[in-house]
Structures are given as C-alpha cells and as structure tokens.
C-alpha cells in the first residue's frame, strides 16, 4: 500500500507542477484537454455515486444543464456573480433531484424504468431550454457575457492555468467525496438497497431517505461540474449540456473505466476524451463523422469484451496474481 501512496504522491506533484513545464506551442491545447478530463471525470464520479448502487440514471444531462444555464442566465441578465449563481443553481438542482428521486423511491421505480424516467427528465430539460429561446438562445446556445478583463467576480480568466488549477481542485474534491461515501455506513445501506429493497427495508434501512440523499448529492455535484464547464468554455448549448447525448456520454465514460473503483470514472473519461481528441486530430474536418463512428464502434467492442471496465479489469488482474502465489504451497 505504501508503494501505492508514493505513486499517488508523485502523480499529484506532477499534476500540480505541470503548468511550469515548458511545452512550447502545445501548451494551450494540452491544458484544454487536461481541464476537460478533470471536469468530466468529476461529473462522471458524481454519476457513479448513484450508478454503483444500481441507480442507473440516463438523464444526468438534466442536472448538468440546469446548473450551467442557471448561472449563465443569472450572470448574463442580472449580472449576478457565478459564485452566487452557483448557489442558486445548486438549490434548484437539489430541488429537481428530490422531485425525481422521491416518487421514484416511493413507488419503487428501479432498473430499466428508473433509466427511462431519468432519460425523460433529461429530455424535458433540454426541450424546455430550446422552447424558452427568447432567454436561452434555443438550440443555438448562449455565450457567457464577457467581463472584459480577468475577473474573479465573473470567474473569467484569459490564462488557462487558473482553470487548470481550479479543475484539479474540483477533481480532487470529487475523489474525496467518493472516498467518504465509500467508507461510510451509507455505502453498506445503499448496497443492501441495490441488492434487494424489500430485504433492506426489513432490516431497518430507511430506503427512501438514503436514495434521495445519494441522488441529491450526485445531482448537485453534477450541476457544479456543469457550471465549471460552462465557465471554462464560456458557452452553453442544450445539446452539449442536456438531453440524451451528453447523459449517455457520461455513463459511457464511467462504465468504460469501471464504476466501482475510485479512479474508474477518471480512467474512463481520460480515455474517451483522449480517444476523441486523437480521432479528431487524425481525421480533422476532411471526414466529418469518422472520428465519432470509430468512437461508437470502440465503445461497443469495449463493452462486449471488458464488461467490468478497463480500470476494474486491470485491477482484478493485478490483484489476482499476488494472491495465487501464497495459495500454491497449501495445495502442494
């Protein structure tokens, strides 16, 4: 375990020191990719908080979009700083999460049905954003109003390094929340609920309360991720921040990495973003759609051949080896 700790320390030090490494002309691009990986890993981790307990949401775009649009609209129309806007957004997202989660757990909507209900919620948010086009710009999206100069109040900075550190902190925060949930009593309770709700209730677990709590936590973190992404990109669009497309992308990245491991969502997100970037660079704009085509094909192949995710499979392989050695003398 100590070797693992050292490895983590080195990795963290490298990530913190990265902005001071000379990278020449690639600097902006590399930071752009890294920031995206951190933010989407954070969002993936937030999704996995629910997903690992069998609450497979196909509509996290709803929370993402609600968060991003709330802060952006409040800033654009009322000049409210995104810091306070984020507070409003978090409250709204938590409310939406309760509105979805309470009836879902009350009426035992689970499995396929839970997935499809959340999918509908995601589509409702996307369509509402498009329908209110006088405010939101409809499907054309909306640019975050520029503050003119670097401003902490507006959370706008010309230097990508500021966003890099912010995204790194956000990502670490997400891992910490995951770790806390993983070590808590709530985890055992949620696992019991995921296995069999009736049995869990019969041993005194308050099913509804736990489900609502984990959904609200997951939704709020997702909204924070959406706000961070909107502030960084300075542009919001209903198709990239709400609806079925982005919701499925989040789930994909997490399942690809492995949703039962701390770093699973990060590994999956890093791989999907890296893959998308490589394909985009290789095919450029000459073959529109080719990059995404290969992306889709690889996702199918990965899911068929690595059902427990890349990180999960690799970790299982590594764990199996040391265990098989001490077992050998016993049988001999």
């Amino acid at each position: 375990m100590s070797a693992g700790r050292v490895g983590v320390g080195v990795l963290l030090a490298a990530l913190v020191a990265a902005p001071f490494v000379p990278m020449g002309g690639m600097r902006q691009y590399i930071f752009h990719v890294l920031i995206q990986i951190f933010v989407w890993s954070f969002i993936g981790g937030a999704w996995a908080l629910m997903g690992r307990f069998g609450l497979v949401s196909l509509g996290h775009g709803a929370f993402l979009g609600l968060g991003a649009y709330t802060t952006t609209l409040l800033w654009n129309f009322f000049g409210l700083t995104p810091w306070l806007g984020a507070l409003v957004a978090v409250v709204l997202t938590a409310a939406l999460a309760v509105i979805v989660a309470y009836p879902c757990s009350r009426f035992q909507v689970i499995g396929h049905y839970f997935g499809l209900v959340t999918l509908a919620v995601g589509e409702v948010v996307r369509l509402l954003i498009i329908a209110e086009r006088d405010w939101t710009g409809g499907s054309l999206g909306l640019t975050v109003r520029p503050a003119g100069a670097d401003s902490l109040v507006a959370v706008q900075f010309a230097d990508k390094r500021v966003f890099y550190y912010a995204a790194l902190v956000l990502w670490a925060l997400g891992l910490w929340v995951w770790h806390r949930v993983d070590r808590s009593m709530a985890r055992s309770a949620m696992e019991a609920i995921g296995e069999d709700e009736t049995a869990a209730a019969s041993v005194g677990i308050h099913v509804t309360r736990f489900k609502i709590a984990i959904t609200v936590l997951s939704a709020v973190l997702t909204a924070v991720g959406g706000i961070a992404y909107a502030q960084y990109i300075a542009y919001v669009n209903p198709d990239t921040l709400a609806g079925i497309g982005v919701s499925l992308r989040i789930v994909f990245a997490v399942v690809l990495g492995g949703m039962y491991a701390l770093l699973g969502p990060t590994v999956g997100t890093a791989l999907t973003i890296a893959l998308a970037e490589v394909l985009r660079v290789v095919f450029g704009i000459t073959y529109v759609g080719m990059a995404e085509t290969i992306y889709g094909l690889l996702l199918i192949v990965f899911i068929i051949f690595l059902p427990s995710g890349i990180y999960g499979s690799v970790r299982d392989l590594l764990r199996r080896r040391p265990r098989s050695q001490p077992a050998a003398p016993v049988t001999a």
Partner: peptide, 12 residues
C-alpha cells in the same frame, strides 16, 4: 450501453 454505442456509431 452496447446498443447506446450502436446509436453513436449509426448516427456518426
């Protein structure tokens, strides 16, 4: 998700 991957594939 496997059929979701098919969705991305067919669309693109």
């Amino acid at each position: 998700l496997a059929t979701g991957g098919l969705l991305f594939f067919l669309q693109s």
